[in-house]
Amino acid sequence: MSDVSVMEQPIIPATGDAVLELSGVVRRFQQAGAVLEVLRGAACSVRRGEIVALVGPSGAGKSTLLHIAGLLEHADGGVIRIDGRDAATLDDAGRTALRRQTIGFVYQFHHLLPEFSAEENIILPQMIAGVSKTVARERAKELLAQVGLAARGSHRPARLSGGEQQRVAIARALANRPSLLIADEPTGNLDHHTSDDVFALLTRLVRGSGTGKDGFGALVATHNLDLAARMDRVVELRDGVLVES
């Protein structure tokens, strides 16, 4: 990959099935009286049925980019479109609603609620979104079957292995049928074999969702270059801009 200046930074083209479009995204922080520009015009897109790797050295700003793409943090400039909607035009309540309706999150640690079963952990976000408990339970059972844990729904997280916990976390992220899945080192806490299994599952779910209206895309931050190479595309965050490999 060659160095790319801000002026040369390519806008990765979006298509009609893009679920995430970032263009000219800027993010600055005040640090010790100076301005630190973490993102300097970052641009990329993610389409339905596509899994995109986000790589870069520690401290490059990958988590900041994911937070902006996930509407958890405001950018200082640029365009952020989620499923065709311009997030910059929304107030905080609108951003929260859009995030809840269209985005699912998976983190390095599963963050499951320990006092609830696997099934209940998938039911809760649906009920928060206004889904009835009966419908939410059926959706939870469906997702647990998809991630290979149909027989483990009544188990609390402490009774699940690390790989099983992360599978439940993936199912929970998909509970409200998002258009975009954002994952930050989703296999980072797992051993090599379990990591491969969880990544294979995630890839199968994304690609298997298709490019139609029910499909979803995924942006996955990882330090594992072997896993990154198995995704559909790789974008590297370098000096505040994104360069496609």
Rank of each mutant, 00 (worst) to 15 (best):
I82S: 00
A183G: 09
V198D: 00
D76Q: 09
A151D: 15
I80L: 07
H223M: 09
A200Y: 09
R47T: 09
M1S: 15
V206A: 03
F199A: 08
E73F: 07
R99F: 05
P157D: 10
I68M: 01
T203F: 04
D92H: 05
L242A: 03
K213F: 05
E50F: 03
D91K: 05
V46D: 01
I128R: 02
S117M: 06
N121I: 06
G16K: 08
R167T: 11
P57F: 08
A136F: 03
D196Y: 03
A145Q: 13
E120D: 14
I51C: 05
A118L: 10
V25K: 00
V19Y: 00
V220M: 04
E50V: 13
R137F: 06
V106C: 02
S117D: 08
R167N: 09
R238Y: 10
R204A: 14
V243T: 13
E142P: 07
F109Q: 09
D226M: 05
L242R: 00
C44I: 12
L202C: 08
G215Q: 07
L242F: 07
A129S: 12
I182P: 00
G16E: 14
M7G: 06
Q101I: 06
E236W: 05
A140K: 00
S154D: 15
L202I: 15
L72K: 02
A129D: 12
R167P: 02
L190E: 01
L90Y: 04
L237N: 02
A221H: 01
Q166L: 10
A145I: 12
A140T: 02
K62N: 08
A169G: 07
Q30P: 10
A129W: 04
V243Y: 00
S154F: 08
V243G: 00
E21G: 05
A69K: 00
E73C: 09
P114H: 08
Q31V: 15
R137D: 06
D92W: 04
D196E: 13
H67D: 15
Q166K: 06
R207K: 14
I82Q: 00
Q126N: 04
G208F: 10
E138C: 05
F105L: 12
H193G: 06
Q101E: 15
E50D: 11
A53M: 10
R99L: 10
G217D: 03
G61C: 11
E142S: 13
A93P: 03
V220I: 15
A218S: 10
Q165G: 03
L71G: 01
T203K: 05
G56N: 07
M231Y: 02
A43R: 00
V168I: 13
R95L: 13
S117I: 06
I122D: 00
P157Q: 08
F116V: 11
L190V: 09
G130P: 09
V234I: 15
G70V: 05
A221Q: 03
V19A: 02
R85E: 15
S23E: 14
L202G: 02
